[in-house]
Amino acid sequence: MATVVKRLVSYSWQCPRRIAPRYTPTSAIPWQRPFSSTIRPFKDDKSDLREEWKELIEDLQEMDPETFKNAIESGGGMEIDKDDMDLEELSEFDIEPPEPKQKIGFWGDGEEELGADEDYYGDDISALGHGELEQHRELREYARLAAWELPLLSKLAKPFEPPSKATPLRFRYTTYLGENHPAAKKVVVEFCASDMPNLTPQQKDKLIKLAGVRYNPSTDIVKMSCEMFETQAQNKRYLADTINNLLAEARDEKDTFADVPFDFRHHKPKVRHEFPKEWFLTPARKQYLETKRQQQLEKDAALETKGKLIHGAKIIEEALVNQLAAMPVPELVEVAPTRGRGKQRLR
């Protein structure tokens, strides 16, 4: 309950206050200006301050500069008179109990760790603002680091050495820059089957068959990973042991696996289509195509002049004309007048 109230108070701090607690009201009835934006007139106690300052300056002037000097040289504080440190009476051994804790305020009731209620004097930005500033400071800190510290890292750089024949294994680790991540413990190892030392071709084949789907026939690389164990080191150890076992098995002549065919069903080689070289329009090819087209035109023209070019439409027309010509001309026959006895209809 108290927390909610405390939070309410903290939010209320972000709003302009009506009552400033720095002064004590002079009259019994406080003068209130709820909507005023000007500064309250406070009691003028500047004259007292001036006197205090005067005193302090005089005291400082009276001080012997030698004392300071000695103190600095001896490396300690000011000399303490040791004679005064004697403890004679029993009562002097009594240790005063510590001062009672500050009284817990109204808003901290039930939650002592929140401490006493704070007073707000209207001279600070809100907690949200502080958060923003904090973030900005943090960013600036990293920017400073990037500008000043990171270039120094180049001093630590080592020249790249390509892996040699003696180091055919390539391990891959993953870091999440200090964060906890379930995959941070994972270790992946890759090695080329042909790079493994002291393997006859038959043993290499057996190694590939044992590796199963972990073998990629396009690249000749076996890839294995492990995240069984809690730590990276354990996983790496396991991988190394597995590879050793694989090699030992591959070298085992008892069963050479010669009768087992390779199984690459897990691998689908990527098809790459390349633009055919012959299709590139080089000047020579352009020239060739141009002459070919010219020859075609000439060929057609020659056929046309010889009358051997075949026009489909013309052939059909000719055939139709010939058909008509071949058809027997219908003979006109004189119609004999009807001499029927029937009634003739006149119109």
């Binding site: 075609q296 070019l309 489909g312």
Partner: peptide, 20 residues
Amino acid sequence: MEYYAASGMLRRTVDERLVS
């Protein structure tokens, strides 16, 4: 294609362009 045209099944001029 010349056979098609001569059979009257292709009403076009059979030249290199059409054939191509």
